[in-house]
Amino acid sequence: MTDISLQRDRLEKPTLIYPFASPPEAGKVIAIAPGVVWMRMPLPMALNHINVWGLEDDDGWAVVDTGMRTDETVAAWRDLFANANEQRPLTRVFGTHMHPDHIGLAGWLTRKFNCRLWMTQLEYLNCRVLTADTGREAPEDGVTFYHSAGWSSSAIENYQARFGNFGKYIHALPNSYRRIQDGEEIRIGANTWRVIVGTGHSPEHACLYCVDLKLLISGDQVLPRISSNVSVHPTEPDANPMRAWLESLAKIKREVPDDVLVLPSHNDCFRGLHARLHYLAASQERTLDRLRHTLKEPRRAIDVFAALFGRSIGETDGSLLNLATGESLACLNYLLHRGEAKIELDETGVARYQMR
């Protein structure tokens, strides 16, 4: 649900340029380029903010992402509307992807301004499915999934107690939406933005690239100081999102020049896109090499945390354990799909992985 990433490597990080001295305060805006403003919404977690973007449209403003459904975020939006020098409505809401910090108030804003949600199909549909789990008991498939990863009975009980929380942070989505697709060019006010879809962090994540303004709204696909969580989930235990994420990094490097200003969902606006993309890919490859070394002996998913993240993960923080397990399985599945590793279940159903 969150984008709090775990430290993957100790590679020397590239020198990025941050052209703005500080981010906007809640309820305020910073002008990024003609017709483009930066806003920031609070989050109730360690990663305590998300950046959202305003794009001047013909009859008002389009916004990209919304923040999570919380009283604090609603208050921040109300402050923005009250402080606006010109009372122009929202014309449309773009969602980069389905996570609650990005789409949590899309339903509220689209209803408030009678405008449409623009989103990729897989993100919209997956969000509808996950929000429908609110109030349900945890499925047996999920229990089996985390048991196989090596979770204790108490950790699984914690998962069962927390199951269905996803929808609590998302205002009911509109019942229809405007589908956007990879490569589509969308006119917003005076500028054209091209959709660039990435995968791995989420099913069909939309970035928006404006050639004329030299801007890339990168969402969670490229972040300057942290790395997006790439996880395997109980609904698709055999998935290979790490391959998809690495391929998406290469795709963005091919399709977007290095001279853009990157507008990420977390941290600050930055220059140095290609250096950051190279670092993220190289860091992950070194992490996979450490995992290969660790898998000389059979290991459960929870046994490889130190190799991947440089630290142990306890059971007391259920959210962090969930993120770490999902990303560990993404790395393990990557090696399985490449034929480098094998998997065996013991008599209790716990999986152990080892290099071939």
Rank of each mutant, 00 (worst) to 15 (best):
E247D: 11
Q181Y: 14
G219S: 11
L125A: 12
G183V: 09
W38S: 06
S227P: 00
T348M: 07
H266W: 08
M1L: 11
R292T: 03
V232F: 00
R352Q: 13
D289F: 07
S227A: 12
R10F: 11
L16F: 08
T96Y: 00
I188R: 10
M45R: 14
T120D: 04
G107N: 06
L43G: 06
A75R: 12
Y169V: 02
E236S: 08
S312I: 07
E184D: 10
V52P: 13
M119R: 01
R69P: 01
R311L: 14
P264R: 07
S22Q: 15
R88A: 10
K214T: 01
D212V: 12
D57C: 05
A281G: 09
Y353D: 01
V29R: 14
A351S: 11
L329P: 00
D289I: 08
G35W: 05
N267A: 15
H293F: 09
R290A: 00
P224L: 00
E315C: 06
K342M: 14
F163I: 05
D238W: 12
P174G: 05
I30V: 10
A33Y: 10
L335F: 03
R356K: 15
L47T: 14
D101F: 09
R136K: 15
T294C: 14
L90W: 01
A21C: 07
A138S: 14
L280M: 09
G272T: 04
A33I: 04
G164Q: 08
G326C: 12
D133Q: 14
D79Q: 14
A155N: 07
H49M: 12
I17K: 13
A26Y: 13
D220R: 08
W61I: 01
N229K: 06
P298Y: 03
A244D: 07
A106I: 09
R271M: 14
G167Y: 02
I302M: 13
L122P: 00
G35E: 07
L125N: 09
L273R: 01
L122A: 15
V222D: 03
L261I: 06
L261G: 08
T70W: 03
T134D: 09
E140K: 13
F113A: 05
D141Y: 11
A62G: 11
A155C: 11
A351T: 00
Y209D: 08
K296Y: 04
P14A: 10
T144G: 04
W61P: 05
Q121F: 07
P234R: 05
K214F: 02
R225K: 15
P298L: 02
R92T: 01
S152D: 09
D346I: 06
H201A: 05
D238K: 14
L109W: 10
V262A: 03
H49T: 12
T235A: 13
D9W: 05
A62F: 06
P257A: 11
D259E: 13
T316P: 00
S231Y: 01
V232P: 06
L335C: 10
A341W: 01
R8P: 01
A301Y: 04
G164T: 04
T66G: 04
R111S: 14
G272R: 03
I103V: 12
L173P: 01
F166D: 02
A106T: 06
L261R: 12
L332K: 08
L332F: 07
R311N: 12
